[in-house]
Write a protein that binds this DNA or RNA. Sequence first.
DNA 1: TTGAAAGCGCTAACAC
DNA 2: GTGTTAGCGCTTTCAA
Lengths: 346, 346
Amino acid sequence: MARVRMADVAREAGVSVSTVSLALSGAPSRIPEATRDIVRRTAAEIGYRPNSLARGLRTRRTDTIGLVSDQIATTPFAGLMLRGAQQAAREAGRILLLVDTEGDVEAETEAIRALADHQVDTMIYASMWHREVDRPAALPPGTVFLDCVPRGGGPAVVPDETQGAGLAMAELLGAGHTRIGYVGADEVLHPEVPAAAGLRRTAYRSALESAGIAPGPALEAQGAISAPGGRAAATTLLDRPEGERPTALFCFNDRMAAGAIAAARAHGLEIPADVSIVGFDDQPSLAADLDPPLTTIALPHLEMGAWAVRTAVRLLEAEETGAEEGTTLIPCALVRRGTVAAPTAR
Amino acid sequence: MARVRMADVAREAGVSVSTVSLALSGAPSRIPEATRDIVRRTAAEIGYRPNSLARGLRTRRTDTIGLVSDQIATTPFAGLMLRGAQQAAREAGRILLLVDTEGDVEAETEAIRALADHQVDTMIYASMWHREVDRPAALPPGTVFLDCVPRGGGPAVVPDETQGAGLAMAELLGAGHTRIGYVGADEVLHPEVPAAAGLRRTAYRSALESAGIAPGPALEAQGAISAPGGRAAATTLLDRPEGERPTALFCFNDRMAAGAIAAARAHGLEIPADVSIVGFDDQPSLAADLDPPLTTIALPHLEMGAWAVRTAVRLLEAEETGAEEGTTLIPCALVRRGTVAAPTAR
DNA sequence: TTGAAAGCGCTAACAC
DNA sequence: GTGTTAGCGCTTTCAA
């Protein structure tokens, strides 16, 4: 592809390749501005572009970052993480090498090796949902974990679930609700989501306590992480007699919230007049499209993706492995839409 | 990263580097199986991994594919295309270099250049929705277009919208419907989706004609490509008096179908008992989560992604530029869920 | 202030 | 059958 070489620039400019190299590298050096300028000009003229391979072979730096993920397409959030990572990579003048293991451990090792073979400067290991992972042995030191935290420590970034859930509860509490139910993820059905599930539920309970309200099983229901699961769980909560029925529901995620909305409707309840609902995730093309549009907590996928590559680059440039680094929590944001109102005395 | 070099293997195995090179390259050559075996064994033993950069510098082949896309995260389908591409790349022993231009033309040129600098063997230009594009000048010959077709020709792959719409109509017609409305995309509001919008509407009309039913404006409505847009458009169709009201609605896409479902509900109509609805796209985490789950036409994003890299690789290996190649249509599939039934005499 | 030359790790002629 | 060697295009030391 790149036809014209540095030697061509040198010949054309009437200097040697070393002069071209030095002149073109931004580094302050011996080359006087005049020569520099000539070189730059002729390089541009004949369309010279450095061959990254050759440079990389020599400098052992390729300006690339390997991104290995378990399931690129499985969640609607993957795109946002990728986008954040990609943006940050571009800002750092780097390119992302992408590899998807489809969740296959053997493929994962091979994928990581392949990235290493291509001499990526550093790697990012991304999970498509917040969880704890075992650090794949093939991963080089300095690898940053994205939306997952490695057992054993290391630089990682995940959403601040606790803060996010706090935001949701503050919104509901602030609107005047006192009987706030929790539509949770069934942890028996979903042993694989402990991070988010545990954190959000705990934050729900402590928000209640901080407000002087006693949490209790009567206010909590669990279901599969899906609209039907949310509907079923919300139904058990909404089935209670009027005076005991929650006036607001905080849901584990948007999909369950969608089910909760359906459950409320089936009970003849208006949203948000009779029941307020808050979701979690701000799932693209779901939360905003619900009827009414769902008030929810946005997961900071874009920011997390960007943070991961920035950190990887920082570690790289500082020549650190990041072994000492811990997990960074990125705050979630409340997205106010149409499902929260003050409770009404019906 | 890769610490051990070919020279180490050579020394360890007591042969020369050329022997190692030849032995390790699968190519049938002079090296006898016995020597080959020794070399392979020692290579594995000391954990030798070839340096792709060095190989690439020498062979001018890097086993990489550059993927430039306009908006990675904008559509929920991006993940599927990426996944298909990634799978096919892995099968071909290649790695994807990913670059997102965020729709910025200047950034696009720079991104393409950056990929070229990294000596990718070939490129794929992906759009996040089916449309016609101007071929960016910086793109090398042999570039394959994914979910878009370049004005001027070249290898491209897009969904077979016509066949997909035909499938939808066949399903509705087959169920016995004769008054089938079309909830379309407003082409004035959305000048940027001509490909899909025109194709689907035309296919709708000709399916009607083939069935001996006259299409007409009374059966068609347009709206913004969104749930509210679909709801509004569907409402105008459903407002007609009972005997003239469509008994089925074919919607431009799933989001509009979601709105159509809401509109039907608002009219006190049961789905699918009173109105059947078919969407288009099979949008992840939308179509299947609707209530009832939406019968729709699945866009072949995964297959398209895979096709694109396979084609790029084929062209590469055949040393063709693909200039003669045209657009390949990948068939869509009908996904039967819960929104189609036979019309009932109410 | 500039140029020559030695590699980075590999492949592929070309000897032997 | 196997080894020697000349690069691929670049950076960087060293000498001038």
